[in-house]
Design a protein around this nucleic acid. Sequence first.
DNA 1: TGACTGTTATACAAATATTATAACACTAAA
DNA 2: TTTAGTGTTATAATATTTGTATAACAGTCA
Lengths: 126, 126
Amino acid sequence: MMIIDIDFNSDEALYLQLRNQIIIGIATSKIRIGEELPSVRQLADAIGINMHTVNKAYTVLKQEGFVKVDRRRGAVVAIDMDKMETMKELRKDLKVLLARSSCKNISREEVHALIDEVYENYGGLD
Amino acid sequence: MMIIDIDFNSDEALYLQLRNQIIIGIATSKIRIGEELPSVRQLADAIGINMHTVNKAYTVLKQEGFVKVDRRRGAVVAIDMDKMETMKELRKDLKVLLARSSCKNISREEVHALIDEVYENYGGLD
DNA sequence: TGACTGTTATACAAATATTATAACACTAAA
DNA sequence: TTTAGTGTTATAATATTTGTATAACAGTCA
């Protein structure tokens, strides 16, 4: 199972930290397509948080098309290829992110380089 | 003065919508460095929201180094060049964003293209 | 003085986040 | 068939965040 580390001092909601780390886990193949996520009770116990907080993360992941739920196997990684929807969201997020960086004198080239850096760090996913 | 349009049906907090739009406004030179933002009361009236909501947006912008406060002139656009800090935050945001896109089969090249597209749309800021 | 700044202090309502128990329907294995 | 494991749902309680509402304060400027 992948390692999840939650920052209880972060201002980011627990269920969102969980969601983000699971998405990163999928992208970096620490969790494979078809693989089962730990049960809500297991993961909640392991982290030391409530079952419902994990359940909320799983529900969001399901709505966003990262997992499907199988009665027999629990939450299973399964990607919905809603590429258009995702592109739309990405564009909106990037608008703010690029405005922020531009204000702070971070050039377009530096952003491109930063992206490549993150990709390399992930170990060449493409 | 720049145009602010708030989506009251959005799940994004009003003060964050405000913050983001002002940052985009600065990046796209709709508000220039040294220029004064409308007073909290003026802007609140114009949008039809409470003074404190605008004040919160301004406080966040100040903490993040986008405006400074002048007793005489109110909130003035002034960028703190805390480039290192901003880079760190960008990297963290990009980690999640790129993981998300990678899961949805959006390639590295498509992300680069999307970024260039947003930049072009802004009118070539650098 | 008078009108305007941001700031601060309360108070309140609504929504969200988190925890806590408990039960339900279903599945798989003993 | 019992038992233990899934996710799901319901209900309740608490804490935090968000947004609004008044009101006052100290400083600035015409």
